[in-house]
């Protein structure tokens, strides 16, 4: 890390940032600007969700009383009281501003279906999902990376073709189906690994993490093998080979360091895959988490809870992208923090 950080500072300073002070200042300013952008993104996500939920047919009160088509026992007066209790009798603009004002103070309201404060619900659901997504990400990197390296390294055309065909299959297999088959076979038929209550044990994490990792692994394998192939065709790998570097060294050191860059830009897609996949995986494996909350909240149009989930997802996206943007210059000297164009002077 230290060596890389030094490299950033050294490389950014002379290239048009002379007056901006030392490189760390540039990085700070850059991060501040990105944080400001992040706030805008969060506000936009919050507002768009409100508008969308407001435009949807029905409303949470009606759904609570009549959800599923059963007639309600409540009188119209009682229904009106409930609307008033939750502020749904107010004009949408007032509702929006009230909710936004409270959100700014960190109060995301109370879930309409469970009565639990939204912040508490999210705080409870985040650890199991983070655990699941983290394990799935590591698995996906190892699986996807392994397949990509093997597919480009092997000299057997048959094996190469087989390995190259894997990613499309991985992308095409529905997560729901993979999860159910794994549960039926591994848990119920072979009696290995519990199918329920996965949160509490490491063994319970294996199947859900594997299920969730497959589409991501497939994505990584696809993009990484393309990157590796492109990199292997470049002059610098030819030079390395000419200098006598072993085939493995050329592949893993020279080609991989450049070939991995396109994969890093996938971070947004991967985050999305993980969050969306969590909805399905958590349902199949009976795990609590953000995915389960999302599904139930959207179904019940539980406005405060949906808003909370969207905000959380937006924060995760923003952070993941920021992290990659900060990491990229460390890995690729051609990319510089804050630069608009590679090599050009920033404003």
């Amino acid at each position: 890390m230290g060596r890389h950080a030094h490299a950033v500072a050294r490389r950014t300073r002379p290239a048009g940032f002379g007056t901006a002070g030392p490189g760390t200042g540039t990085v700070t300013r850059y991060v501040l600007r990105r944080l400001f952008q992040a706030l805008l993104v969060l506000w936009a996500a919050y507002t768009a969700t409100f508008a969308l939920l407001y435009l949807l047919p029905s409303d949470p009160v009606s759904l609570m009383l009549r959800g599923g088509g059963e007639e309600s026992f409540a009188t119209p007066e009682q229904e009106a009281e409930l609307r008033e209790r939750w502020g749904f009798d107010q004009p949408p603009a007032i509702q929006y501003l009230t909710m936004l004002g409270l959100a700014l103070t960190g109060d995301l309201g109370t879930s309409l279906t469970t009565g639990q404060p939204v912040v508490a619900a999210l705080a409870e659901a985040l650890p199991p999902t983070a655990q699941l997504a983290g394990a799935a990400l590591v698995t996906a990197v190892l699986l996807g990376g392994g397949v990509a390296v093997a597919a480009t390294y092997t000299r057997s055309p048959l094996l190469a073709r087989f390995l190259t065909a894997l990613p499309p299959v991985g992308v095409a297999m529905p997560t729901f189906w993979v999860g159910l088959v794994l549960v039926q076979v591994v848990s119920f038929q072979w009696g290995l690994l519990t199918a329920l209550g996965g949160e509490t044990s490491a063994a319970g994490l294996v199947l859900p993490a594997l299920t969730l990792s497959l589409p991501v692994a497939a994505l990584i394998a696809q993009v990484l093998s393309d990157g590796l192939r492109a990199e292997l065709a470049r002059p610098h790998t030819t030079t390395a080979r000419a200098k006598g570097a072993s085939r493995a060294r050329v592949h893993l050191a020279h080609a991989l360091s450049g070939g991995v860059l396109p994969t890093l830009t996938l971070v947004g897609v991967v985050t999305g895959e993980l969050l969306a996949g969590a909805v399905v995986v958590e349902t199949v494996f009976s795990r609590p988490g953000i995915g389960r909350i999302t599904a139930t909240a959207v179904e019940a149009q539980d406005l405060p809870l949906v808003q909370g989930v969207v905000l959380l997802a937006a924060v995760v996206f923003v952070l993941a992208n920021l992290l990659v943007d900060l990491l990229l210059p460390l890995l690729d000297p051609r990319v510089r923090i804050g630069a608009r164009r590679p090599g050009g002077a920033a404003a």
Binding site: F176, W177, L180, V280, T283, E299
Partner: peptide
């Protein structure tokens, strides 16, 4: 959302049909 209840049972049946041997 589209992956939730409505499609669940249908997919579940497919999965059951395809799992090699069931747990009966």
């Amino acid at each position: 959302m589209s992956l939730r209840p409505a499609s669940g049972p249908a997919l579940a049946r497919t999965a059951l049909a395809l799992a090699p041997v069931l747990v009966l």
